[in-house]
Simulated scan of single mutants.
Amino acid sequence: MKRLLGLVLLLVLLMPGAGPVAAAAPAMRGACGAADPLPCEPAEMHLDGVRRLTAPTRPLVTVVVRTFTGDPDITGRITLSFKRKGGGFSWTRTFGYPGGEKRYRGPRLTKTGTYVVRARYLPPPDSPHGGATRGYVTEVRR
């Protein structure tokens, strides 16, 4: 019985169009475009900002997007969002990302509390790069 189960498992994994590699490939292609025969090159995003702020303030958020191969021509869009924990404030904007290290100015934060800051990198439709998302928590005090 164990041999039969092992043989069936081996056949399923070796069949073309089946197995874990084939199951993951369409999801990877979807991020870069269905016509792209090669899988996406993942992008890595670094997000930095001040963790403790004094109200009222407009925080600066620094974003750097890189690929594992070091492609210098990475461009796209950055969607930046600030949400206050417990509700009461939400702010989302999309900015162009020309590549390299870029600083974005956030909203004026007047209410004290904890805010979740998230940035999402969206590559152009014809890009071989995948998207990336990062976030951090900042606290606003008086």
Score class of each variant (00 low, 15 high):
residue 36 D to N: 14
residue 81 S to K: 00
residue 61 V to E: 01
residue 112 T to D: 14
residue 7 L to Q: 11
residue 123 P to K: 06
residue 120 R to M: 13
residue 59 P to H: 00
residue 26 P to W: 12
residue 3 R to Y: 11
residue 8 V to T: 09
residue 78 I to M: 02
residue 118 R to C: 10
residue 99 G to W: 06
residue 16 P to M: 08
residue 135 G to V: 04
residue 44 E to P: 00
residue 1 M to E: 13
residue 8 V to E: 05
residue 72 P to Q: 06
residue 22 A to W: 08
residue 95 F to Q: 05
residue 103 R to Y: 03
residue 70 G to V: 10
residue 6 G to K: 03
residue 40 C to K: 03
residue 70 G to L: 09
residue 55 A to L: 10
residue 72 P to D: 10
residue 57 T to D: 03
residue 97 Y to K: 05
residue 135 G to F: 01
residue 122 L to C: 03
residue 45 M to W: 04
residue 76 G to H: 03
residue 48 D to F: 00
residue 125 P to K: 08
residue 132 A to L: 10
residue 114 T to G: 07
residue 87 G to N: 08
residue 83 K to R: 14
residue 42 P to C: 12
residue 99 G to I: 10
residue 2 K to R: 07
residue 83 K to N: 12
residue 122 L to G: 02
residue 54 T to L: 15
residue 82 F to D: 05
residue 134 R to I: 07
residue 32 C to Y: 01
residue 50 V to Q: 14
residue 2 K to Q: 11
residue 27 A to Q: 15
residue 45 M to D: 11
residue 9 L to W: 07
residue 115 Y to K: 00
residue 127 S to P: 01
residue 6 G to Y: 02
residue 23 A to Q: 12
residue 13 L to D: 05
residue 132 A to W: 00
residue 131 G to A: 15
residue 64 V to E: 11
residue 39 P to T: 09
residue 9 L to K: 08
residue 86 G to S: 01
residue 132 A to C: 12
residue 141 R to P: 01
residue 81 S to E: 07
residue 53 L to C: 03
residue 20 P to S: 09
residue 53 L to G: 02
residue 40 C to H: 04
residue 89 F to D: 08
residue 123 P to H: 11
residue 135 G to Q: 02
residue 137 V to G: 04
residue 22 A to D: 13
residue 107 P to W: 06
residue 107 P to F: 03
residue 76 G to D: 06
residue 43 A to Y: 00
residue 16 P to Q: 04
residue 76 G to M: 10
residue 86 G to F: 01
residue 125 P to N: 08
residue 39 P to K: 01
residue 8 V to G: 01
residue 48 D to P: 00
residue 13 L to H: 03
residue 134 R to A: 15
residue 60 L to V: 12
residue 9 L to T: 09
residue 104 Y to K: 02
residue 9 L to D: 10
residue 113 G to I: 12
residue 87 G to R: 09
residue 85 K to L: 15
